[in-house]
Every structure is written in C-alpha cells, then in structure tokens.
Design a protein around this nucleic acid. Structure first.
Lengths: 212, 212
DNA sequence: TTCTCAATCGAACACTTGTTCTGAGTCATT
DNA sequence: AATGACTCAGAACAAGTGTTCGATTGAGAA
C-alpha cells in the first residue's frame, strides 16, 4: 500500500467536500493545504495519477477544471446547490466566545446560495435568551456568522465589549479615533467605544427565525 | 429595454450551456466571446449587475467561480430539496392587504426544506419601513407567510387590526371571548382584542434577514 | 554500506484570469 | 450645440493558478 493511496483518498474527499460547498473545483494550492501536501508539484503529480486511474478528470492549463468521475455524491451541476453550515454553538450576550470550532457541530443548517454567498468559515450560532433584542434577534434565532476579525465599515458584526463583558450584534463604523456601534433597531442610538475595548468575532451574514 | 437585458440574458444562457458541457464556470474571456462583448471589463460590469439582481453568484478574485442561481425565464426548478417561493409584495404596517397573488412575483427566494416544509400557498413578503419592530422585524426583512385564515393557538400570524388599521405580526391566542395578540418581543405586553376586530392573513413560517 | 528510484519540497516560471483605468462612442436631456 | 450619464473597447495591470525543474529525503535493493 503506497502512501499515494492515502493521499488520493484525502484529495478526492476534499474535492468532493469543496464541490458541495462551493460548486466548483478547488485550486492546487487549496488541495495541497487540505490534504497535507506542501508543494503544488506534489498535488499535480497525485492528480495526474488519479486522472489515469479514472477517479477524476481535468483540462490541462485550465484553472479549477477538476471534475470527479467515480464518486456518486459529488454534484457538479450549475444550479441550485445548497450549502451545509455547522451549528457550532450558542450566542449569548454574556458569553465571550461564540465561535467554538473545536467541538463537533451540534447540528447542521442547510441554506441556499441566495442566502449566503460562497465563503469559508461560515458558522451558525443559536441565540440564547432575550438579551439581544436590540439587535432584533430573539431566543432561538439562528445567526449566520462569518468568522473574521477585520471588518469593513457598515458591516454587521458580533462584537465583544470587554469593559461591560457583553456580546452583541451591531453595525460597525470606524470613525476618527473611535468605533461607533449602531444597533439594528433604528430607534435606538449608537454607542461610541474605544477601538481596543472591542473584539470583533465575526460578520453577521444573515439571520433566520424558524417560527413554530 | 436597455441593452444590458439582452446581454444579461445571453450571458446567463451561455453560462448555463457551458456548465452543461464542461461542468465548470466559463472565464470572462469565454463569456465575452460567446455573448459578443469584446472587452473583459464589459463582462465584469455585466456580471456585477447580474449578481446584484440575484441571477448568479461568484467570488471576487477566484477564477471560474460563477454559479447560476435562478433562471430568468421561468420559475426556478428547485431540485435537491429546495423550494422556490415567490416574493409577491411588500409588508407594511399600514397596508391592509399583504398578499397580492394576482400579480407576477417580483422575485423568487429559494429555500431549503429545513426552513419551510413543502406546501402550497407559501409566499414571501418584504418588510417595508421600521414600523414592525415590535415583531423583531425591520426594513428589508423577508417574511415567509403561509396564506390562510384559520390558525392554531400559539402560531405567529400576520393580523390586520381593523379599528386601528394596522398590520402586524403577533402570536395568536384565542382565549375565552377574546383574542390575545402577543408581540415577538417578550419585553412588550400582549394586547387583547375582539375576535371580529382582527383579520388573519396568514401564518408566519419563518423570517430571514440578509445582512449587507 | 551504497545505489537506485520514488516521494517530496521549494522555488521559479509562464500562462490564465479577474480587475482597473483611460478614452471613445451613443443617447437622451437641456 | 452642450452637457451628462451610460455603454463599450482597448490596454495595462495584478493576482490567481498550473507547470516545470533542481535539490533533498527516505525506503528498499544490491
């Protein structure tokens, strides 16, 4: 049993997963990162072998042209692909760390591409309690969050305010010298805080409330 | 009829065809050649518009990442367990008739079966204005509504209160002799009304807020 | 041990591909 | 006719991406 078999299996599994999420082929670099191959040359050689063995096909010189052949679960189709997102935890106003990615997901929420654009690091958090109502979010609501720490002005983010030890969802505006946090409820006022008093935990992409 | 419409239709048709043949997105150059656009800049601009209009999605900076979302010519097919719902109008607190089903839909929202069970008479309404904040719903939110006039206790419904001429989203409780309408915001109080003062317009199945 | 071959890495390279800028043309309005 | 908004072409640019090559490592055979 050569080492390639392990690699090949990992590569195919990753391509399948990547297809399901992004509806496109990964690049050689992405494959390498996922399968533990440092060099793109290594990826290239392994892909050639897998192509000869009939597991996949690709067009030389064309980027992101890998298509799985033998694997029945891949869905290389143009339209209606859905994106499974992991429900990784609970969002509570007094919880500092909403994004726990080491634990296995509690659940999965599948959404269409219309709701969440194709991106990595998107997770779902379930809101606990009614303490985040000024974000127009209530107990049981699902927040689709892109994990990142740098945000653009005007984006809605999950922020942890260190002095008050409060997590909240606010529109983020960096203004000269301070950060303005604006509630989703337009009838409430913004608050200004010092930049080093807040930790950005992610960008809010969407909010879903399932009634009943 | 602007020129873009023609271009947009040609571009979408080509991408669809290209996907069927190659199982991948075409490049900007290939799109231009097929749709009669000489410049890649032209293709780029048209694609941005089509993305804003919701016909397709792509990831900036990533080659061949275009994915078609809906077909402009027809009702989306809704394969893979997805359900296309028509966006039929606007929900405003002072509008008596939220559900206008005679007009052609403004748009389509495709959701997964996790969010809304497959059923008839489910439509989408877009919230206009911030007058429905006590339902934790704000301008731009999408309300998935099942059109019906009889509801069970505890369901969230769209109700029209005739005396005040106000539409709102409330939990419905039929109690001895009167109807109790409970806001989604638990910090607000219920109101009691006479049964003949309210018109049930439908049951709220879900609420979706797309950020940014 | 020494040789050989395959696996692997790291880097350089060249092609592919998306983005941006300038200016020309078109059309409607003033 | 002058203006402005818009579409479009052409080219330059920058980033993404596949390909290739030399060097290193490690395992197994001689």
């Amino acid at each position: 049993m050569t080492q390639l078999d392990t690699h090949g299996a990992r590569i195919i599994a990753f391509i399948e997963r990547y297809w399901q999420t992004h509806q496109r082929s990964p690049s050689y670099e992405e494959i390498g990162a996922a399968a533990g191959l440092v060099s793109k040359d290594h990826v290239s050689r392994d892909l050639k072998k897998l192509k000869e063995q009939g597991y996949l096909s690709f067009t030389p010189g064309v980027s992101r042209s890998i298509v799985l052949l033998k694997n029945p679960r891949s869905r290389p189709r143009g339209g209606d692909g859905t994106i499974p997102l992991p429900v990784v935890g609970v969002l509570h106003s007094s919880e500092p760390e909403p994004v726990a990615d080491k634990v296995p997901p509690l659940d999965w929420l599948t959404v269409t591409r219309e709701l969440v654009d194709d991106q990595d690091d998107v997770v779902v958090l379930k809101v606990k309690g009614d303490s985040m109502i000024d974000a127009l979010v209530n107990d049981g609501d699902l927040v689709l969050l892109k994990k990142k720490h740098d945000v653009q002005n005007g984006e809605m983010v999950a922020v942890w305010h260190k002095p008050t030890r409060q997590m909240s969802l606010k529109y983020y505006h960096r203004e000269n010298g301070h950060v303005r946090l604006q509630p989703a409820n337009p009838k409430l006022d913004s608050v200004n805080v010092k930049p080093n008093e807040v930790e950005i935990h992610g960008q809010v992409l969407a909010i879903v409330r399932k009634a009943s």
